[in-house]
């Protein structure tokens, strides 16, 4: 191929080639920048959540009125959910992971010394019941999950993140608090005012509430039902392909005790006793 005639033609009339070169250069700049931005998002989206998020639906129930019985409501609601066709499992959880709303607090591998113990290690925490590991599809790599009789409920304790007897932690939190690869099953974890709970199991991986937080995978599941909120969240694991049909069914049932809406995620309850790093 002859390059010379092409070159000499370009030199004779410069406007056209310059225009095209400029266009290509700027287009390239746009494409590269966009690709970078898209890539960043894709990286976030492709991170492992540790959960069976493909088949997870969350529903919320809000108890009100003087005779509201939290425990009975949870039992009835979960029975009703389990009886629905296509539902594989349903469990109580205090919030929706990755929703941008949740609770976070420092926990320690030993009793706290003073107000600012440097060993305090942040964790997204959720209250959960004995079915939660299966409903979320969590993988337990050490120890075990909660037994039904271990799940506590004290209706008078409205503290946020009241310490139960037993907790399960993610490997990421255990690594950060106790050291890389340290065995933590049967060891104690302390909250900032010195109340302790026993670690009975370790989750391989799970993500907490805030997508852009770098301590997203430091999670603790507390083995109790919180009395701090009237909102109860259910994690519902459905058979593959069922998620969209379930989500579109925004049915609300009317009863004296509960207003029950499927996928009523409109209320945005960020629990207290939490330092939300997203705000910084």
């Amino acid at each position: 191929m002859e390059i010379r005639p092409i070159l000499s033609a370009m030199l004779r009339s410069k406007t056209g080639p310059v225009l095209i070169a400029l266009q290509i250069a700027i287009t390239l700049a746009i494409v590269v920048n966009s690709a970078f931005i898209i890539n960043q998002r894709l990286e976030h989206m492709h991170r492992l959540t540790g959960m069976d998020h493909e088949n997870l639906v969350f529903a919320r129930s809000y108890g009100f009125g003087p005779n509201h019985d939290t425990l009975a409501t949870i039992r009835e609601d979960i029975d009703a959910l389990l009886a629905m066709p296509g539902v594989r499992n349903a469990a109580y959880i205090s919030g929706i992971p990755l929703s941008g709303s949740g609770s976070n607090s420092g926990f320690l591998p030993h009793p706290p010394e003073g107000e600012n113990d440097p060993d305090s290690t942040n964790a997204n925490y959720y209250n959960g019941d004995h079915r939660l590991a299966e409903a979320l599809g969590l993988k337990i790599i050490e120890g075990r999950w909660f037994h039904p009789e271990e799940i506590e409920f004290d209706p008078t304790d409205t503290s946020y993140g009241a310490m139960p007897k037993v907790v399960v932690v993610t490997r990421a939190w255990a690594d950060a608090a106790f050291g890389e690869g340290e065995p933590v099953v049967d060891r104690l974890v302390y909250d900032s005012i010195g109340r302790s709970a026993r670690i009975i199991g370790v989750i391989e991986h799970m993500q907490g509430a805030w997508v852009n937080w770098d301590e997203l995978d430091q999670v603790i599941i507390l083995g109790n039902i919180s009395a701090a909120h009237s909102v109860i969240t259910y994690a519902i694991n459905v058979e593959p392909g069922q998620k969209e049909t379930r989500r579109s069914r925004r049915s609300c049932r009317r009863s004296t005790a509960t207003a029950w809406c499927s996928a009523c995620a409109r209320t945005r309850t960020t629990s207290p006793a939490a330092t939300t790093p997203t705000a910084r």
Binding site: Y62, H229, S230, V231, T267, R268, T269, T270, S271, P272, A273, A274, T275, T276, A279
Partner: peptide, 9 residues
Amino acid sequence: DRSGNTNCW
């Protein structure tokens, strides 16, 4: 029931 953002230190 409060909704919103609470920060404690």
